[in-house]
Design a protein around this nucleic acid. Structure first.
Length: 558
RNA sequence: GGGUCGCUAACUCAACGGUAGAGUAUCCGGCUUUUAACCGGCAAGUUCUGGGUUCGAAUCCCAGGCGACCCA
């Protein structure tokens, strides 16, 4: 509301006129609020301590009386009450006439305040700072949401995360925990001599996964670049180069849809260990996740959306074939040909795409459609079909399969790992097959990365790799229902901009549009017929959204 | 991509074809032990956007925007 903002700006001016700074430079606290709460937990009602303390934080509630006031002050970790006594403050702050009255008059909920005082537990039992001096550190101009209902509108929580973080402590808790999780993962790996090495985000070919990349453009090199869809191929190059234990925890970009489980940019960790196989990596995975959970949530089990997940190791390990057999009754080792399998699948209610005639793909479909959702407790699924795993080493004893595992918890894929394919000739053939699929129109098929193949030809030791979806791990350990709750600033569509005005240069065919937010864009090569339709449209905004935005090139003017 | 639901004051929500309202917050007044403080008063709106139906639309219809959930 403009009015609230205006009155607060007046207060800013008043603060300045008193010779104070509404936007201060520095404050030294002696404690955080939770430290005070812990230190004086045993202080009795009505008792007071002489210790001088200083704290700072945001005012989240004000209860003001004639000559006495109570504020609730919130810092990053908690809250504490301020006991504000007119006599005491006026006496201590003799430089500022009517210091108490000014405090009442000039502060609002939302302001950031620093105070000094002593510790006192009020007669009602609330631990408080009995304030002698206060300093307004930052004057807030915009009102905070309702203190009781808070901010519940999901969209606003994501779009204005800072407001969400101010008013919803549980939201702050998720990101605090997320930071602890990534720190614990790094600590775990570093203790075991893994080295974190950063690999490029901008790549001339995006490889290492089946996914569509984002495309960007380098101006001076005049070339298209892709944002990475995996760190796999570069980390393997490092293994070729002689690093035996490497990992990278970082952002991955996939040009895919958005859902409660997918954000186009997400965080993954990939880990590579030379001289190990996928059994070793399963051991590491379960120990890593169990250890991180113990460090971060101090428990061996976790409650996720009402389900109790037991993280006690060892976790179940079962082959994909056996799981499909168990759930659907279909035994994929017994089908004489793809046709029989297809018919059996369809009878079991599994949808198989028209052109699909690969047994491995059908097995995977059966698994995804019927089994995945049932894997609530931690389960390693083993031995995947070769068709869907072009970078994995063939199984040492089962034809047509690879030595690969995926970890499922609460019905979701959380990790993926395999004994890496180290045979450069085999790898070339498999990537060539992928490239052929890509040429045939499969947008997600792998690229053929000649340099990666060259690296393999120099020789890579037997190696096992692992990838973990960090966002999903955070979801699990914070009981977050949506991935957007686990990402501080999830990708959201930009809100449509209202148009203020527009004009048209008919000789240059430039349409100049001024938006309500003040930005001005020039849309290029816009035919006069389009301008005419825009002008005559009953709804300029609607016509603009449907027929001009995204349809014409543009330059930003302001 | 399909379906369902939502969008009204800064926040949380009413009003369901007939004068747009409440609580909280703000603003003014009162109050020295409150903690969703209390009491009294004032002010606050592009009902997401654009069309349509109607004497009359927040409400019904159409199109669009954004979001949530479910499904693929």
């Amino acid at each position: 509301m403009e009015e609230i903002r205006a009155t607060r700006l007046e207060k800013v001016a008043e603060i300045k006129s008193l010779g104070l700074k509404p936007y201060a430079y520095k404050w030294e606290s002696t404690h955080r609020t939770t430290e005070l709460q812990a230190k004086y937990a045993d202080l009795g009602k009505g008792e007071e301590m002489g210790d001088r303390v200083a704290v700072a934080g945001r005012i989240i509630a004000r209860r003001v009386f004639g000559k006495l006031a109570f504020f609730s002050l919130q810092d990053e970790v908690g809250t504490i009450q301020l006991y504000l006594d007119k006599k005491r403050i006026d006496a201590a702050m003799s430089d500022l006439p009517q210091a108490f009255a000014q405090l009442k008059k000039l502060t609002d909920v939302g302001d950031i305040l620093g105070v000094e005082g002593t510790i006192k537990r009020t007669d009602k039992g609330e631990l408080s700072v009995n304030v002698t001096n206060y300093t307004i550190l930052t004057k807030s101009l915009l009102p905070l949401p309702d203190k009781w209902h808070g901010l519940t509108d999901t969209e606003k929580r994501y779009r204005q995360r800072y407001v969400d973080l101010i008013v919803n402590p549980e939201s702050r808790q998720i990101f605090r925990r997320r930071a602890k999780i990534t720190a614990a993962i790094r600590r775990y790996l570093e203790q075991r001599d893994f080295l974190e090495i950063e690999t490029p985000v901008l790549q001339s070919e995006a490889g290492g996964a089946e996914a569509r990349p984002f495309i960007t453009y380098h101006n001076t090199l005049e070339m298209d670049l892709y944002l990475r869809i995996a760190t796999e191929l570069h980390l393997k190059r490092l293994v070729v180069g002689g690093f035996e234990k490497v990992f990278e925890l970082g952002r991955i970009f996939r040009n895919e849809g958005v859902s409660t489980r997918h954000n186009p940019e997400f965080t993954s960790i990939e880990v590579y260990q030379a001289y190990g196989d996928y059994q070793d990596m399963m051991n590491l995975t379960e120990d890593l996740i169990k250890t991180v959970a113990e460090e971060v949530i101090e428990a061996r089990s976790v409650n996720y959306q009402g389900k109790n997940i037991n993280l006690q190791t060892p976790w179940r390990r079962e082959t994909m074939h056996n799981l499909v057999l168990e759930v659907t009754g279909l035994d994929f080792t017994q089908f004489p040909d793809p046709e029989t399998a297809k018919t059996a699948c369809q009878e079991a209610g599994i949808e198989i795409a028209e052109g699909c005639n690969e047994l491995g793909k059908m097995l995977n479909e059966a698994f995804e459609q019927k089994v995945e959702a049932t894997l609530i407790q931690p389960t390693f699924v083993l031995d995947y079909p070769m068709e869907i795993s072009p970078l994995a080493k063939p199984h040492r004893s089962k034809a047509g399969l690879v030595e690969r595992f995926e970890l499922f918890i609460v019905g979701r894929e959380l990790a993926n790992g395999f004994s890496e394919l180290t045979d450069p000739i085999d790898q070339r053939q498999r990537l060539e097959a992928q490239a052929a699929k890509k040429a045939a129109g499969d947008l997600e098929a792998h690229n053929l990365d000649e340099d990666f193949l060259a690296a393999l030809e120099y020789g890579m030791p037997p190696t096992v790799g692992l990838g973990i979806g960090i966002d999903r791990l955070v979801m699990l350990l914070t009981d977050a229902a949506s991935i957007r709750d686990a990402i501080a600033f999830p990708l959201l569509k930009s809100q449509s901009k209202a148009i203020n005005s527009f004009d048209y240069d008919s000789t240059k065919e430039i349409l100049r549009v001024e938006f309500q937010n003040g930005s001005v864009y020039q849309y290029l090569d816009v035919p006069s017929s389009v301008y005419k339709e825009l002008k005559d449209s009953p709804s300029v905004g609607q016509y603009f959204n449907s027929s001009i935005r995204d349809k014409f090139g543009f330059n930003r003017e302001v």
